[in-house]
Amino acid sequence: MEETIAGPEAARIPKQRGDSLPEAAVRYAEERHWDVFPGTWLEAVAGTHRCSCGRSGCPLPGAHPTDDDWEGRATSSGTVARRLWSERPTASVLLPTGRTFDALDVPETAGFLALARMERMELTLGPVALTPDRRMRFFVLPGAAAKVPDLVRNLGWSLPSLDLTALGEGCYVAAPPTRYGSQGAVQWACRPTPANRWLPDAEELISPLAYACGRSR
């Protein structure tokens, strides 16, 4: 039987809180104990928005680290985060993976299909971010990046054939309300709440995610 996404995709996204970038950074550090660090930001130049890095053709304008030492600058201290964003209130909010969480990155279409399937399976989800470049990132326990290749192979799939990536140590994700160039802002498809403070293991989500990625190829 063919599976469909229940309801319009837009209707599945909860109303977003109106936090500023500094407020969001402090809240992630204080409420979730996530490490945060400020990234690049958008600058208005000749009627368009360009990345503060100044690089022509920047692939991720306004949402990438400003230097190579970003891992060392990440902090879970609300006090430090408040100071960092007071110095640059327009900086993007970036979260390193491989510490308090990893992220399973899939195409938006596959992500919505997987969400519908997970709801029917009554799986407990962690936060899920929706990016303006039409990707969905499922937050899971650290260690997923090392396990996903074997998990996918055990399900009978070839990882290169699925547009599914596990982001772990040495990687990062942009958090709401960070903006990517002119594409829009990162949003929460499933926002962080006290109910999802305890993250699922990648093994719990990999089957519906692999199925959805296979279906949406």
Rank of each mutant, 00 (worst) to 15 (best):
D19N: 05
P8A: 15
T90C: 02
M118H: 07
D35W: 04
T109L: 12
P160F: 11
G111A: 11
G156R: 10
P132Q: 03
A116E: 13
T178G: 04
T100K: 11
D133I: 08
A24E: 01
G54L: 00
V152Q: 02
A129I: 06
R50I: 08
R120S: 09
R83V: 09
S56A: 15
S161R: 14
T100S: 12
R12W: 13
E122D: 14
L151H: 06
A74G: 02
R83S: 12
T124P: 02
G111F: 05
T4Q: 15
A166S: 13
A129E: 03
E108R: 05
S86G: 02
K147C: 06
S161W: 06
Y211R: 13
P177N: 02
A74C: 03
Y172M: 05
A114K: 00
A103W: 12
C53I: 05
A175T: 03
A110K: 06
T75D: 08
A166D: 09
V45N: 12
L205T: 08
R197H: 11
S76N: 13
G126R: 00
T97C: 15
A74H: 01
L205S: 04
A11S: 13
L167D: 12
A195M: 04
S216M: 14
V106N: 06
D68R: 10
M136A: 08
G72V: 07
G57F: 10
A10Y: 06
D102R: 04
F139H: 12
E9H: 10
V173C: 03
S77C: 06
S56R: 15
I13K: 14
P38Q: 10
A44M: 13
T165R: 05
G126F: 00
I5S: 05
R137I: 00
S161L: 14
L164N: 10
E71R: 11
T90P: 00
V80H: 03
S92E: 11
Y28V: 12
P38F: 02
T178K: 03
L209F: 01
G168W: 09
R197F: 05
L155Y: 03
V106F: 14
T48E: 12
T79F: 03
P127N: 11
G111N: 07
G47F: 01
D69Y: 10
P132Y: 03
L205A: 03
P160H: 07
L151P: 02
I206C: 06
G54A: 00
M136S: 08
R137E: 07
G98R: 09
W188P: 06
E23W: 01
D67I: 04
L209K: 00
E43S: 04
P132I: 01
L42V: 04
W34A: 01
G54N: 01
T40M: 04
L113I: 05
A185L: 08
H49S: 09
K15G: 13
N154F: 10
P142M: 10
E119D: 11
A210I: 15
A81H: 07
A210N: 08
R117N: 02
W34K: 00
D163C: 11
V152K: 06
S76A: 13
A202Y: 13
P38K: 01
T75W: 09
P127S: 11
S20T: 15
P200I: 09
V36C: 03
Y28M: 10
